[in-house]
Design a protein around this nucleic acid. Structure first.
Lengths: 154, 154
DNA sequence: CGTGAAATATGTATCGT
DNA sequence: ACGATACATATTTCACG
């Protein structure tokens, strides 16, 4: 699908702040409210806008550790890792997962309240997997940047 | 600040879908619309809800590479890394940054359209930094999971 | 895509528990 | 202190040009 200058302006704005009213958005991008709304609806229906979410302050809910986990598998055969992928998709501690090339196969971002919870997580997802070869744990006490936006070229 | 059962229900819902109307939200959590709105406004003012954003489909904008970068510094002295942190905060390619303990000092999630752009990024942030000792690049062709929510205990 | 009007939603004030 | 009801204001959404 083709995105013109105005679509891109809408998307840039909604990535920054999706709480504004359609009226405000319309003014920012220079359209009438109905024309603007029609575009937003279209962008949603086409899946360009996947969803709209509230981002919460991690420090508002007691202790919160961000842990990066690099997982190396014994074999890269897809069918051996399908169950691993299915499982982590359903684990709320796993916030992100990237399949990477090179020595490491997956990088996970895990969110837990403390180290015992992380131990539990390792048991549940990693040690229990017969195809898991090794993993490295990188513990973060400080999330320096967290930006959900996508850079949209002109 | 104290969050009761209803606040938590509101937050769980808004993390999943912040596009619903206050009327719908009020019904889900079992409050009248004004009572619900008052809580949402309070949660925003107190910073529990940081912002509301639209999440876009990365595949809607041409090529998109996710790259994880593990950066090791020569010295961990705060003042030597302050400029590095300031700089990456202003680089739109850097979507996330975690300060970690251990051999590695920082893990970055970088988003670029292609490898030349990544080379440029490395020059601009890494090679140019006199305190940078080494970095490892993990290229992802597949983002398996991306969940912006925080798990809220009961 | 814009205008204007109808349908909804948000926000305020007040009262009751 | 908190929620509900009723009312006023603002926004969304539809029909039409």
């Amino acid at each position: 699908m083709f995105l013109d200058r105005i679509d891109k302006a809408i998307l840039r704005q909604l990535q920054r702040d999706a709480a504004i009213t359609n009226l405000q958005l319309a003014e920012i991008v220079g359209l009438s409210a109905p024309a603007c709304l029609k575009r937003v609806k279209r962008l949603q229906k086409e899946g360009v806008i996947q969803r709209q979410v509230a981002l919460l302050n991690p420090d508002s809910f007691g202790p919160c550790l961000h842990i990066l986990v690099e997982v190396t598998m014994q074999s890269d055969r897809r069918e051996l890792n399908a169950a691993f992928i299915q499982k982590l998709k359903h684990m709320p501690q796993v916030k992100q997962c990237y399949e990477v090339t090179g020595e490491v196969d997956f990088v996970l971002l895990v969110q837990v309240p403390d180290m015992p919870s992380y131990q539990q997580f390792c048991e549940a997802l990693l040690y229990s997997n017969p195809n898991m070869k090794a993993f490295t744990t990188l513990i973060s006490m400080n999330r320096i940047k967290y930006d959900t936006s996508l850079t949209i070229a002109d």
